[in-house]
Design a protein around this nucleic acid. Structure first.
Length: 577
RNA sequence: GCGGGCGUAACUCAAUGGUAGAGUGUCAGCCUUCCAAGCUGAAUGUUGCCGGUUCGAGUCCGGUCGCCCGCUCCA
């Protein structure tokens, strides 16, 4: 920060962290490369180098361990029972109907319009405008009968009201509705519908407080919507100015299944892993003896044609998710929602995002989907979002929306029979209860998580011999430890090699143990600092005499003497292995 | 999608329209008993890509791709 641009400490606690410097380090040390770089790169795609791949694997493993194998570190859920989760691994390509049921296809393949005020989105071709002019108006002059239509369809006349209707009968319903409503001073008493030949528009006469009026109900053409969206009243609020122009949301990656590549072979790459879980919900229930409440986890690549991929790997078009769908009885869903929301926040803290840069943000009521009773984001203050935050994970109460959708579209029963519920039978056993489970969804982005870990770990301290270094949590660090002979002679390399072999044999499951005898000791420490390696063990002349080595700590640079045979147990404790 | 900025070695950057360079890193050798230390040497570039102007283009012009920033968007 220069003196000319002071930045208060409270606004940005890490002003020294520049994204350019972080990106340069990521490239230099082999964490992240641009995808297809030798061909000029491809917008929205990034590859991981050796250290990045291991970092991300460690993050994925940590999620898998703490969410599936030993959920919530063995903690009890709201009902006092142990949390139980199982994994699945589902295909990137699913039956196209999966995405129709989920709402990803259909709803988002057509040009869409947003109402900025109510945050509602609808298909542009479903917007119907009501155009009204006084009977004596020139547009409606008998000699120029089609005038009102022409005026409406050319954008000269703005609609007094708009509706969402996808077909003729819905348009009629909207018209019926008119009779009961007040339309900005127009008290519509009666409307006589007259189908005027074209299916897409309806002209009618009506009585109003202002006398005889002529009306026209017509689908607003796309090109008119583009030009006049600011003057068209919102179908939700009736106020003009809040509609966006129609926009194509082609966010699904399309592909073809089979060699012929015809229209009927179209399939989509998944935009989220969650639907794989819902689609296999019955199979998991029927084949694995799980009982509600329980969770199903799924990790893997997902694809979205983001409008604007930006901010390094934060919003990329191919990304990896780690999602849990936790199923419970509707009456317990809010408690489970709160439980998962709190645990997920705690989890991110436990792997190194412990400072003020991490927040849990509960969504406002008007941000929620219509079916959700609660949604929270775990958000991190990235250098490029500061002083704001970017989402790492969303924890959503999805109610029974997804299972119900798939039940409707697949016509397969998705309800769960809970033998532990229901009235008691004469023999004292519960009769059981059928219900559609509710679902709590903690859905994390692994690429965003890895990026947040790197940003949080990145530290610049000009007073150090190695000014730039990564303070990665030992559990996540791709390189767990390094072994150096202080000098490459006098028996030191041999001892170092032996220690390196011992540590590798013990810890290869967690990450790599490096051995480096080249160049000065300072350079070797500095190299390991940039790679985020937390511990270095140096064999020196004394090692031969007293069987001790120097432990050098990455974060403090402090050194301490340690018995050679204690190194493994020390590391074991630090790595939680 | 719109507007602005920028693309030269692995990284950070130089180079009046006139022979593509430096520092760092990397690698090798020597030397070194704890912090990018020292000495010697080496490798690495169709200056993002394509075209144009010019005797001559890293430099000027057009296009394109990519990255960054601001809007927009983020189901």
């Amino acid at each position: 920060m220069t003196a000319a641009e002071p930045k208060p400490e409270s606004v940005s606690p890490n002003p020294a962290k520049s994204m350019d410097a972080i990106m340069a380090l990521c490239k230099r040390r082999g964490f992240i490369y641009q995808a297809s770089e030798i061909y000029g790169g491809i917008n929205g795609f990034w590859d991981y180098g050796p250290l990045g791949a291991q970092l991300k694997k460690n993050l994925r493993d940590a999620w898998w361990q703490d969410m599936i194998m030993n959920p919530c570190w063995g903690r009890s859920g709201p009902g006092g029972q142990r949390v139980r989760c199982v994994p699945v691994e589902t295909c990137i390509i699913q039956h196209p109907k999966v995405w129709e049921a989920s709402g990803h296809v259909g709803g988002f393949n057509d040009p869409m319009v947003d109402d900025k005020e109510t945050k509602q989105r609808f298909r542009a071709d479903h917007l119907v405008g009501l155009f009204v002019v006084p009977a004596e108006n020139q547009y409606i002059d008998k000699a120029k009968r089609p005038g009102i239509r022409k005026a409406a369809l050319s954008g000269q006349l703005a609609p007094v009201r708009s509706f969402i209707a996808s077909n003729e009968s819905e348009a009629h319903l909207a018209l019926q509705e008119l009779k009961k409503r007040d339309l900005g001073g127009l008290d519509v008493r009666a409307a006589h519908v007259q189908i005027d030949g074209s299916e897409s528009w309806h002209a009618f006469d009506m009585d109003s407080a202002r006398g005889q009026m002529h009306g026209l109900l017509v689908q607003i053409p796309m090109r008119i919507l583009e030009q006049t969206h600011t003057t068209i009243p919102s179908p939700f609020t009736g106020k003009a100015g809040s509609l966006t122009p129609p926009r194509q949301f082609n966010l699904m990656f399309k592909t073809y299944v089979g060699a012929t590549a015809t229209e009927s072979d179209i399939a989509y790459m998944r935009p989220e892993t969650a639907q794989g879980v819902f689609v296999q919900f019955k199979n998991v229930v029927d084949t694995t003896r799980v009982k509600i409440p329980f969770g199903i986890g799924n990790t893997g690549r997902s694809f979205r044609n983001e409008v604007t991929p930006r901010n390094f790997t934060f919003r990329s078009r191919e990304f990896e998710q780690a999602e849990l769908e936790f199923f419970c009885h509707p009456s317990e869903s809010v408690e489970w929602y709160q439980f998962w929301r709190d645990f997920r926040m705690e989890w991110w803290k436990s792997i190194g995002l412990a400072g003020d840069n991490l927040i849990l943000r509960e969504h406002e009521k008007d941000e929620l989907s219509h079916y959700s009773q609660g949604t929270s984001d775990v958000e991190y203050r990235f250098p490029f979002t500061a002083p704001g935050f970017g989402e790492l994970e969303g924890i959503a109460h999805r109610g029974c929306f997804d299972l119900t959708q798939h039940q409707t579209h697949s016509k397969q029963k998705m309800e769960y029979f809970d033998a532990s519920r229901g009235e008691l039978a004469p023999n004292g056993q519960p009769k059981g209860e059928w219900y559609m489970p509710h679902c709590i969804e903690p859905a994390a982005g692994l690429d965003r998580g890895a990026l947040a870990l790197i940003c949080e770990a990145y530290t610049k301290d000009e007073s150090r011999a190695s000014p730039e270094f990564l303070k990665l949590h030992p559990r996540l660090a791709p390189i767990k430890a390094a072994v150096f002979p202080l000098v490459n002679k006098d028996g030191m390399p041999e001892i170092a090699e032996k220690l390196h072999a011992e540590l590798t044999a013990k810890f290869w499951r967690q990450g790599s143990i490096e051995m480096d005898e080249k160049q000065s000791i300072g350079k070797r420490y500095a190299r390991m600092d940039e790679a985020g390696c937390p511990f270095c063990f140096t064999v020196d002349g004394d090692t031969v005499k007293d069987q001790t080595v120097t432990l050098r700590d990455r974060d403090t640079g402090a050194q301490q003497r340690m018995a050679l045979d204690k190194v493994a147990s020390f590391l074991s404790e630090k790595l939680g292995a």
